[in-house]
């Protein structure tokens, strides 16, 4: 068997994986190894595969991913801190044929924006919410977030999170799964190639749910913040597998359609 030269492999027709055309050429400002980059890429790939680039509107949050509109070549609206689901509600109601998604971190969604996300999900808005949970405030310097694990050291809990002083870590995805307006609630991660493919399937399903008007789809992506956690990217993934996954187990929490409104009308019938 003749050996083939590497120059003969590197040809246009042999490409099996390349950067999505929805991603712009701008270099991402994220730290090396940040999970945001992978999550952005998956959204871009799903939008490209579904052919909905000109029908998609994203809502970007405040936090590290505030510049999401610089990297994805779709229409974007910036929201005030935590208010992305409220802005997405308005966009979806005014332009019901568009695909609307929000992209938020845990400091944005689980803390200051907890009311907005819970009520948007409770109303059953036909939007996709992507929630990147790295258990820390990354952009502002690694402070404690509502999702920080007990005992985890951050800039504001240098001796580890203490329940008496700082409260319990919040499983916001479990809270949201109980709301009648949601149709698809899942928790995924992006640390290995297999996990990335699963997350991509989840994002695809969420956009299809929006197309079929099934209700709110909510995807939590358990991710790393190697700068905030003060470890290198590979060790951060290992730490996430060893600790985060125990408290935030992966998998689907809900996969159906939003509750039938008729079921709720019986209570005031004579």
């Amino acid at each position: 068997m003749a050996d083939i030269d590497i120059k003969d492999i590197i040809k246009e027709e042999n490409i099996v994986y390349k950067k999505s055309s929805i991603l712009l050429d701008k270099v991402m400002h994220y730290c090396p190894g940040c999970s945001h980059g992978v999550t952005h890429k998956l959204i871009a790939e799903v939008i490209e595969e579904m052919g909905i680039q000109d029908q998609t509107i994203g809502v970007s949050p405040v936090g590290c991913s505030v510049f999401a509109y610089n990297y994805l070549n779709v229409d974007f609206q910036e929201a005030a801190h935590g208010r992305a689901p409220a802005v997405a509600t308005a966009i979806k109601r005014l332009l019901p044929d568009k695909y609307v998604f929000t992209y938020q971190g845990d400091g944005d969604l689980a803390s200051i924006g907890a009311a907005e996300i819970l009520h948007a999900c409770n109303r059953g808005e036909h939007i996709v919410c992507i929630f990147v949970n790295n258990a820390i405030y990354g952009m502002t310097g690694g402070q404690m977030a509502p999702t920080t694990l007990v005992g985890m050291k951050t800039a504001t809990t240098p001796y580890g999170r203490d329940v008496d002083r700082n409260g319990y870590p919040m499983k916001i995805t479990e809270l949201i799964a109980q709301l009648p307006g949601t149709c698809y609630v899942t928790r995924q991660s992006v640390e290995t190639a297999a996990a990335v493919r699963k997350t991509k399937k989840a994002i695809r399903k969420a956009f299809e749910n929006q197309r079929d008007k099934k209700g709110t789809s909510f995807i939590e992506v358990v991710s790393t913040c190697n700068s905030g956690w003060k470890v290198d990217p590979v060790k951060a993934n290992k730490w996430m597998e060893d600790h985060m996954f125990k408290f935030y187990p992966l998998g689907d929490l809900k996969d159906s359609t939003r509750d039938n409104p008729a079921d709720y009308e019986q209570y005031i019938k004579d």
Binding site: I9, K11, I15, K19, V38, K41
Partner: peptide
């Protein structure tokens, strides 16, 4: 170690900055 590559695209899938392009041929 270029001779060992089988073009599985695992590297490209996990790359946060999408800088990897993967090629594959059958010989």
């Amino acid at each position: 170690n270029p001779d060992a590559c089988v073009g599985c695209a695992s590297c490209g899938t996990v790359c946060p900055d999408s800088v990897i392009t993967v090629y594959k041929v059958k010989i």
